[in-house]
Structure formats: structure tokens, C-alpha cells
Amino acid sequence: MHDDELILGGHRFTSRLLLGTGKFSDAVTMLKALDASGAQIVTVALRRFNRERSEDDLAAPLLARKHLTLMPNTSGARTAAEAVKAAHIARDLCGSPFVKVEIHPNPHHLMPDPIETYEASRTLARDGFVVMPYMPADPVLAKRLEEAGCASVMPLGSAIGSGQGLATAELLRLIVRDSRIPVIVDAGLRSPSQAAAAMEMGCDAVLVNSAVAAAGDPPAMAAALARAVEAGRAARRAGLMDRGDSASATSPLTVFLTARPG
């Protein structure tokens, strides 16, 4: 729907499904899934160049897809300074102004460091990046990041790769309620129904990776997720019915079908 664009830092998108490129069994499957998803924003990470691994040239097929915007993440950074450095390296590599600020020091839970994330986001917003911070689902932090100049906030649904879904649903609702910038649920989603639920509760987009990469048929799952995001968004715009404590009949209750005695 071109009258319902997602606007991030002035850039306009029609797809509300963002996709990560990690954990796919191979590059061909990843590209098929990406194409099936209709995603226009795709995340990548950074690594040291290694001559023996040069067959993994990820950039070329992604840059060849002209409808795609690359969103490098700062995964591996443990501090704001490292994340800022990673963002500048990534911008030199591909020219994209987008950066996913991703700072998670503990590999067991991969929860984002709120303090380093805030510091990095503030610096990078000042440096002209379109800052997309991966954050805990904290409504106060969300407003601080908005005030710091981020283009969106990306609160987690649950731990990265856990498939635990929208464990933070009530916090997400609070974030959505007060946010003046797009809210993109990022991490922990497992299924199209969860993606649709996130959109129904008012989130502006979802970012998935494991839900597609670890699915039995990643391209098929990517297509299903795309439909779910569209359905959830359309439902939100159509206005869901109220939820009640008791029944509310939809058919007349007039009694005329009584059986004759005898």
C-alpha cells in the first residue's frame, strides 16, 4: 500500500518486514529467502577479511539488488566506542547511512547493553547516520533514544534466536503508545502469527532472522512472514473489534424452535 509507507530517517519503504542474513545454510538459500520476503532492508555484520573465506562475498549479490537498503549491524562491539567505529567502517564499505546499533556483551543471553547503546546511538545520530538501535523493551529508554535522534527504536520480543516470541508484549504496547518514531520488533520471533500480532498491537515493522533461516523451508517461511506482516498491519488499520469480558450475541436469540409436547 503506497499510502502506508514506513519512513525511517526520511527514507521511504513499502515493506514492513526486515530480514537478517545470518544462520542460513548457504548463500543461495539466503538470497532465495530474501527475494521471497519482499524485504527492502537487510542486515549484515562485519568480519575481518580472510583470503580462505573469500567465497563468502556477501556484498556483491546484495548490492546487485537495487531495491535493497543494507543495514550493517555493530555486532561484536562491546562498547559504544567499538560500535561507533564499526558503523564508520560499515558506511565506508557500502555507503548506506543505516546502522543497527547492536551491543550485547554476554553471549548467553545476548541482551543489549542499554548504556552503551544509548551512547553509541547519540554519537552516530550526530554523525549523520540513520540510527536503528536494538534495545531492551524499556519504554523509558525508547524515549531517550528517540530524543537522541534515532530513526526508530528496535525493542526485542525475546532473546535473539530463542523463538520465544513476544515475551515483552506488554512493554511493547507501552513503547508503541508513546513513541513518535517507528517501533520495529527485533529478535525472538518464531512464527508468522507472532509477526502479525506485533503489527496488530501497533508496531510499525518486524525484523526476523532465525525465524526464516532456521525454518524447514526458509523461502516459504519468508513468504509466509511477509503475508503475516501485511495482514497484521491491515488489521491494525482496519480497527480490531473491542475485547469483552462476556459474550455479545451475533445472531438473534428469539425462541421459536421449541419442540411440541407429545
Binding site: G20, T21, G22, K23, F24, A27, M30, T43, V44, A45, L46, R47, R48, F49, D56, D57, L58, A59, L62, P72, N73, S75, I89, A90, D92, L93, C94, I160, L207, N209, S210, A213
Partner: peptide, 25 residues
Amino acid sequence: PAAQRADRILKEGDRVELVTFAAGG
């Protein structure tokens, strides 16, 4: 940046990092 690479002279002991993209979410 790419435009400066031909002209940038390396010195003994310089630390160089070559970075590329990786798959990631």
C-alpha cells in the same frame, strides 16, 4: 577510503585491518 589507498604509504609497525561484510541479523 578507496580514493586514498593508492597514495597512503605504510610505515614499519603499522596496524592494518581489512574488514568485509559477514552474514548476520
